[in-house]
Design a protein around this nucleic acid. Structure first.
Lengths: 193, 193
DNA sequence: ACAAGCTCTTAATCTACATTAAGACTCTTT
DNA sequence: AAAGAGTCTTAATGTAGATTAAGAGCTTGT
């Protein structure tokens, strides 16, 4: 439960000074999370920005009919959290649940603001991360309004091949916006072609 | 064709020094764009980040069947551009077309980098803009995978009421991911209820 | 070792939305 | 003023994907 994976991760983008490293060690807290445990639930304010060291999470909403819809998965070296709630400090409409036993590193909002003010370099790094996330989100929007479920599934496998053996088809179907039954027929069709 | 609207816009977030203002005046170039004119076309690298002073734009892709799909609109005080292409300097897959005669302010990539390096404050401002855009994009993804077209249309009107009289239903349908004909039946149903 | 609970599949029926085609109703442009 | 292009609507028919239900193969816990 050291911050080393996080520091390595940052140093892929920019070298860090010793002072910066020790500040990161101070403000990021390690936690072990068990499968099926939640790190955010609807109605709670998202108080932490979370870096996944090990394990796998999904972030989802529940609609009026009680159906769950996956917005995002996160595995090793991914960030997860409800950015909207984190910044506005308003209750979230999202759940974040561990799909596997996991190890995470979390930073509180006040510490993250301190990070940005005292070490402006991180403003830049996080701007770039957010831009990359936005580009992915835009691609997914275009796919949702222009592609069939089969095309979206094939693109998903192509883009995230390591999810194929790690995440159940029920969860993948919920991410793609189709029922597990229909994903099953898509898979059958692909297999027979 | 002054940078005043842009400076006013930034000052809603943070006051600017005279030096910062004069740098902005130096690097942002004004342009007049006519209805139906493109400021980005598929295959071109997106060389500018664009601030809309006046007028209205849409950003869209064209799929293999030749159908257009609107990713985003932009009116006064909105930013528009293909962020992915702008940063990677790879050819864009998007078009950006003026839906009305327009006035814009554009900054080149090299100048934007200079802006971030010399005036770190802007790193922060643009990080916040990007986060807000990401939150909107995430909300739209969740809607696309969980709501009917009617629900999406009602939410669109609710969220962007000023688009109702400004943007044609053909363009709105393309944004929502339905055909204009089906949007028409939705509108009829709403009117009769 | 067994029940209990997930997960995946198959198949029948149903519905949201697409496609095609046609007509009315704008706006522009000349 | 007339032609023409773009926009909105209506209606018939077609299809992607939802829903429901059932059963088969896996894990998991006791």
């Amino acid at each position: 439960m050291t911050t080393k994976p996080l520091i390595d991760y940052f140093e892929n983008y920019l070298p860090l000074s010793e002072e910066e490293k020790s500040f990161l060690e101070e403000v990021f807290k390690g936690r072990r999370i068990k499968r099926r445990q939640f790190i955010l639930q609807e109605g709670d304010v998202c108080k932490y920005n979370t870096f996944v060291v090990e394990g796998c999470f999904r972030m989802y909403t529940v609609d009026e009919k009680g159906k769950e819809h996956n917005l995002q998965f996160a595995i090793e070296n991914w960030w997860i959290g409800d950015i909207g709630s984190f910044h506005s400090e308003e209750p979230s409409k999202l759940y974040i649940e561990a799909l596997e036993n996991a190890i995470i590193l979390q930073i509180k909002k006040a510490d993250q603001i301190k990070l940005f003010v005292d070490y402006p370099k991180f403003n830049h790094i996080f701007r770039v991360f957010t831009e990359n996330a936005l580009v992915s989100a835009q691609r997914r929007i275009l796919q949702n309004i222009s592609s069939t479920a089969e095309e979206r599934y094939l693109d998903f496998l192509n883009r995230y091949p390591y999810f194929f053996n790690r995440i159940s088809n029920v969860q993948i179907a919920s991410y793609l916006g189709v029922t597990p039954e229909f994903l099953s027929t898509i898979r059958k069709k692909i297999a027979n072609s």
